[in-house]
Amino acid sequence: MNVFRLAGDLAHVFAIIILLLKIWKTRSCAGISGKSQVLFALVYLTRYLDLFTTYVSLYNSVMKVIFLASSGATVYLMYVKFKATYDHNHDSFRVEFLLVPCVLLSLLINHDFTVMEVLWTFSIYLESVAILPQLFMVSKTGEAESITSHYLFALGSYRALYLLNWIYRYFVESHYDLIAIFAGVVQTILYCDFFYLYITKVLKGKRLQLPA
């Protein structure tokens, strides 16, 4: 555990809490892509199956349970409790364009051809692109509420901080995982455009509105 890794994890938890609180307080999930949230739930489900097979630390197990429970809660709030506020029409990204390539890639490029390892690899690949339906929704409506922007910024920062963690671990512990690094780089690149808008607009108190 190093400072980048811890900061990354905290940013990740923070992002999820922001989102849950926003939905709960406003009693609405307007502007949030349910498809991205379902994909994230799938990411955690396929990655944290090892909760039952391998014990790393109390910290790891607790965080895994937090991610599983909070993503489950988010999906429940969006598709059951506050279903009426879910903006179907703007959430039109075709998820099969993400799921099919991730399944194929995880079958082809993995560390070991076992069920657990392929599922882990699938979750890593899927996580890197799971935000696309949300970014697509923002680009379609041309704007995002500031709370949604804070959520996206925290969620994007998490993987960027993990990149620093991997650089640190490579030099200090000689530990590296090419699949995670490759997917992490892709994931962070997808947020770059958003980071730019967030820093130039949202932090200056303006709404995040895309140029027409």
Binding site: V56, S57, K64, F67, H175, D177, A180
Partner: peptide, 10 residues
């Protein structure tokens, strides 16, 4: 012999 792939991250 191949070492098992370590997954200590989230």
């Amino acid at each position: 012999c191949k070492e098992p792939h370590i997954k200590d991250e989230l």
